[in-house]
Simulated assay, not measured.
Amino acid sequence: MTVLTDTWRWLTDPAHWSGENGVWHRLAEHLQLTVVCLALSCLIALPIALLLGHLGRGGALAVNLANVGRAVPTFAVLVLLLLSPIGGAGAWPTIVALVLFAIPPLLTNAYVGMRGVDRDVVRAARGMGMTGRQLLLAVEIPLALPLVLAGVRIAAVQLVATATLAALAGGGGLGRIITAGFNLASTPQVVAGAVLVAVFALLVEGLFELGGRLGRRRPWEPA
């Protein structure tokens, strides 16, 4: 109970929320890193998955290769990048490691969503004279969108949790609160940092869930 009480005192102390090392500043850094990594991951994974899902060729190999990446710890990738000649302290090693970590769920969900589109609908669209581009944009992607967005949600939540590793490479984010707590031998600060990361991840999960419900709601349905 002492640790929980001291953690609550740390979290409710206004001095820990302001300034360059305060919670709000670290939260903004964490959010920025998450958004950048998620955007880069989507730009890499989604076009490949959507195209392969549309063509129906090569997708299984791409998904299997992406799933192999899940078996490689992000921390190990980060360490290798930091030790490489092109690495070093800073944001880029962390961004590269996190992008590689976020690609598998994006690639897998988008490809599975595309291949899960009803083939009868696809054949009917082709019979109506739709070109491949029209079929992709007007039929397949809209029908696959729920699974695509589920992959984005999974990747976003995983990035929020894993972006704490940025502190190990000299970056910012909520991980700096945890590492500072270890350096100060302050268990309440370590626990407080972990709680902040967990709450942030839950908030991101909740926002995606709310956005998904609003997106599925018809205009005439009550909120």
Score class of each variant (00 low, 15 high):
residue 1 M to N: 11
residue 2 T to H: 13
residue 3 V to R: 10
residue 4 L to C: 06
residue 9 R to T: 14
residue 12 T to S: 12
residue 13 D to K: 08
residue 13 D to P: 00
residue 14 P to C: 05
residue 14 P to Q: 04
residue 15 A to N: 10
residue 15 A to P: 00
residue 22 G to K: 00
residue 24 W to T: 11
residue 25 H to I: 04
residue 25 H to K: 10
residue 27 L to W: 01
residue 27 L to I: 02
residue 27 L to D: 01
residue 28 A to I: 10
residue 31 L to H: 00
residue 31 L to E: 02
residue 37 C to P: 03
residue 38 L to T: 00
residue 39 A to Y: 00
residue 40 L to N: 03
residue 40 L to K: 03
residue 42 C to A: 12
residue 43 L to Q: 04
residue 46 L to Q: 10
residue 55 L to R: 15
residue 56 G to E: 06
residue 56 G to P: 11
residue 60 A to T: 15
residue 61 L to D: 07
residue 62 A to W: 10
residue 63 V to E: 11
residue 64 N to A: 11
residue 65 L to K: 03
residue 66 A to E: 03
residue 67 N to C: 03
residue 68 V to Y: 05
residue 70 R to I: 11
residue 72 V to I: 15
residue 74 T to R: 05
residue 74 T to P: 04
residue 76 A to L: 14
residue 79 V to H: 00
residue 80 L to Y: 07
residue 81 L to H: 07
residue 82 L to R: 06
residue 86 I to H: 08
residue 88 G to N: 07
residue 92 W to S: 01
residue 95 I to S: 00
residue 95 I to W: 03
residue 96 V to P: 02
residue 97 A to M: 05
residue 98 L to Y: 10
residue 99 V to Y: 03
residue 100 L to N: 06
residue 102 A to T: 07
residue 104 P to F: 06
residue 108 T to C: 02
residue 108 T to F: 03
residue 109 N to M: 09
residue 112 V to L: 15
residue 115 R to D: 01
residue 117 V to Y: 02
residue 117 V to Q: 07
residue 118 D to H: 09
residue 119 R to G: 02
residue 120 D to I: 04
residue 125 A to D: 02
residue 128 M to D: 12
residue 134 Q to G: 00
residue 136 L to P: 00
residue 137 L to Q: 09
residue 138 A to M: 10
residue 141 I to Y: 09
residue 143 L to P: 06
residue 143 L to A: 13
residue 147 L to Q: 15
residue 148 V to D: 03
residue 148 V to C: 07
residue 149 L to Q: 09
residue 150 A to P: 01
residue 152 V to A: 13
residue 153 R to P: 05
residue 154 I to H: 06
residue 155 A to V: 10
residue 159 L to A: 08
residue 163 A to T: 12
residue 166 A to E: 05
residue 168 L to H: 00
residue 172 G to S: 05
residue 174 L to E: 05
residue 176 R to L: 14
residue 182 F to I: 15
residue 184 L to S: 14
residue 188 P to H: 09
residue 189 Q to C: 04
residue 191 V to W: 10
residue 193 G to E: 13
residue 194 A to C: 11
residue 194 A to Q: 04
residue 196 L to F: 12
residue 198 A to R: 07
residue 202 L to V: 08
residue 205 E to I: 02
residue 205 E to H: 14
residue 206 G to R: 08
residue 207 L to H: 05
residue 210 L to Y: 13
residue 211 G to C: 06
residue 212 G to A: 15
residue 215 G to Y: 14
residue 216 R to H: 13
residue 219 P to R: 08
residue 220 W to N: 11
residue 220 W to H: 14
residue 222 P to V: 12
residue 223 A to I: 12
